[in-house]
Design a protein around this nucleic acid. Structure first.
Lengths: 167, 167
DNA sequence: TTAGAACTGGACCAATCGGTCTATTGATGT
DNA sequence: ACATCAATAGACCGATTGGTCCAGTTCTAA
């Protein structure tokens, strides 16, 4: 829900109705309420993304192959979730309360994604700087493409992302 | 305000207090209230971006020069506005109400940016498909880089974007 | 000078917001 | 069987939300 409507766009009541849970349960498991829940949701989604990255690069023959697989997987996911989901981190943490903790959390999650790609780049024999550059490049492409895909409600942009990576 | 806190993150009272205006004025000039205002704000910001693109490419010798200038201008702007502003369109319209009108408006504004870059690409003798590809590539890079810059609170990413464009 | 439109100011509203609190239920170990 | 405590259920709260409404004020054109 945070992904489609943003942190402030989702109310506690929406959340609880969807989960069939009462307020008491929420505040038992997440003492800080909504913000705690959002942090947890973002972390959970980030772990999913890490798995997706690993699954894409593990069987890849080259870096480009891995990147291509990742983009296709993301495009498929985008279609499945209604072509209106934003990046789970950005929509949950950036639109959240004016909280420095939210921002650093987002930064660390993003850095985790980049680090995961970077590790695979090393496996393909890329140098440290080349790997770092390639990882950040892929991150930027995916995020930008994701946004344009949302605006156009079409996953095509995401699928065409790999072509933008220089050889 | 929409850029820093998102559509739902800004209340009418915040808006009016900042503008030193009463409710009556808002609903006189924007009969639909907040959503009308957001649409207008996004359009205004988009026009600013169009001017920024034109200013960057007008005096450029090559497409890459134009793209580089644009990125540097954006990086500077990002620093000036507190390193926490998101894309004015995305933060205003995507996090807004579940409104198809908001989405199509965002899409058209984005397409306007891409078209503006595309026109300049033509000026540099690029083919129709190459120009389209280059324009979308630049858009995707800027949007993705912008996001990462926000997470890191550093405009460096944006300045390094041009290096990612293939020759 | 005056009629009428354009605009402002702000009181007021129902609905919803995130959050607190207490009573009750369910499970677990003794 | 009982004590203990994690967990659920939901009534309730003050604050704030976006929005309405109308009495006043200011502007403009005849």
């Amino acid at each position: 829900m945070f992904r489609t409507r943003g942190y402030h766009g989702v109310g506690l009541n929406d959340l609880l109705a969807d989960a069939n849970a009462p307020k008491g349960s929420l505040y038992h498991h997440f003492p800080q309420g909504k913000s705690d829940l959002a942090l947890a949701a973002a972390t959970w989604a980030s772990d999913e993304m890490l798995r997706l990255i690993a699954a894409s690069f593990d069987d890849a023959a080259t870096f480009r192959d891995g990147a291509t697989t990742l983009c296709f997987k993301l495009a498929k996911l985008f279609d499945l979730t209604g072509k209106w989901d934003a990046c789970p981190i950005g929509s949950t943490l950036f639109e959240g309360p004016d909280n420095e903790g939210f921002r650093t959390h987002a930064m660390h999650l993003y850095d985790g994604w980049i680090a995961e790609v970077y590790d695979h780049a090393g496996r393909f024999g890329m140098s440290e700087t080349d790997g770092q550059r390639a990882a950040e490049h892929l991150f930027v492409l995916v995020q930008g493409g994701w946004l344009l895909a949302r605006a156009r409600r079409s996953s095509d942009v995401i699928r065409e992302l790999p072509a933008m990576i220089a050889d």
